[in-house]
Write a protein that binds this DNA or RNA. Structure first.
Lengths: 190, 190
DNA sequence: TGCGTAATATATCTGGCAGATATATAGTCG
DNA sequence: CGACTATATATCTGCCAGATATATTACGCA
């Protein structure tokens, strides 16, 4: 058995919030758990069909209102399957592939300004992410719900990782690049 | 065009160190860049054939010594292709899927001791990783080579991330779990 | 001497998954 | 009323991990 699909459970989890169409699922996932989980249409639609066949979701056809669409509601069996999976041990702390580190590992062959561009690009991406996470944190903190402490914990993971990444980026930049002008990206640091 | 294969460049990069067989490549990758990159046989052997067809590596057949094996050496064109790729912008800071966070996001439905087990498991895995990274850092720091500063930078990324993960784990555990005995894993903390 | 086991070595198959692409309709703004 | 954007569903390609299959060599141990 290869690694089993987790798309099923991401979908079931999102459908505990409310019934959604495939398109809405994609939007909601990107807008809530998007910073640590992603799903593509190529996975969502086939998965919805399988979940339907397994009786874990039921389709609800909406014809009258506007254009036709089909939302899916989670069933009792679907909730049970979700809770079962939530209790199973987290698989594989498989180290994720990191292209920046792969390039850095062989960077002796690289011109210093190119290395500087890679690091600047990384820093800018992390800074943008960090600002976004701060906004999400404020939004979650404002809205009191039974899920709130858990949602805060996940967003704080994102904050912790981006902050650590930025600190590493600063240390690495000053270690690997000789001090000089013009090593920064589009907007200068501090 | 979908995302392009980076296996090619991981292989070319490793072959700049010395000629290797498919099996050796797998071992060397796991033992050096394994904490941020992985390759499977299912990728390596087809990739080696493609690289050979493209003239980026040349096979060298070893018949006499022990059992037969084929090592691959990087060519001049292979080195050029590697350097070209090293200079291209790093693709996609795509947020990696994190199963622990997905479970945590829906953890309101989870018994506290199960949540505690997930967090303990995570902490133990990170602690083991951190110790291993410290050993790698010491080994790299001891051996002076032109690659050393770059290899140190990558291993320090691993250290920074595991340390941040451990700090988050501690904060999250004390926030989400009511204080009581028996919430720890096999060996107690401090 | 022989047996089991681990390491070396090569190869293939299944299934998960991202990203691209195709297609169509509904609402909005000018 | 035309352009553009959002909603909505679906499929295809290709990358990739993990599992599995199959030999051969080396080594420890009895």
């Amino acid at each position: 058995m290869a690694r089993s699909s987790k798309t099923r459970f991401a979908v079931l989890g999102m459908l505990t919030l409310r019934p959604m169409s495939g398109y809405e699922l994609r939007e909601e996932i990107a807008g809530s758990i998007g910073y640590f989980w992603s799903e593509s249409f190529g996975q969502l639609y086939p998965t919805l069909r399988v979940l339907e066949a397994d009786g874990l979701v039921i389709p609800e056809r909406h014809a009258g209102e506007g254009r036709g669409r089909t939302t899916f509601a989670i069933t009792r069996a679907g909730r049970d399957a979700l809770v079962d999976w939530l209790g199973t041990e987290v698989e594989s702390l498989t180290p994720d592939r990191n292209e920046l580190l792969l390039k850095l590992f062989f960077a002796r062959r690289l011109a210093p300004q190119t290395l500087g561009a890679h690091l600047s690009h990384h820093r800018e991406a992390l800074e943008a992410q960090h600002e976004q996470y701060l906004r999400v944190e404020a939004a979650v903190a404002a809205d009191r719900s039974p899920d709130q402490p858990f949602w805060l914990a996940t967003i704080r993971y994102g904050l912790a990782m981006t902050e650590a990444g930025l600190a590493w980026n600063r240390a690495t930049t000053s270690t690997l690049l000789p001090d000089r002008e013009g090593q920064h990206g589009s907007h200068p640091a501090s």
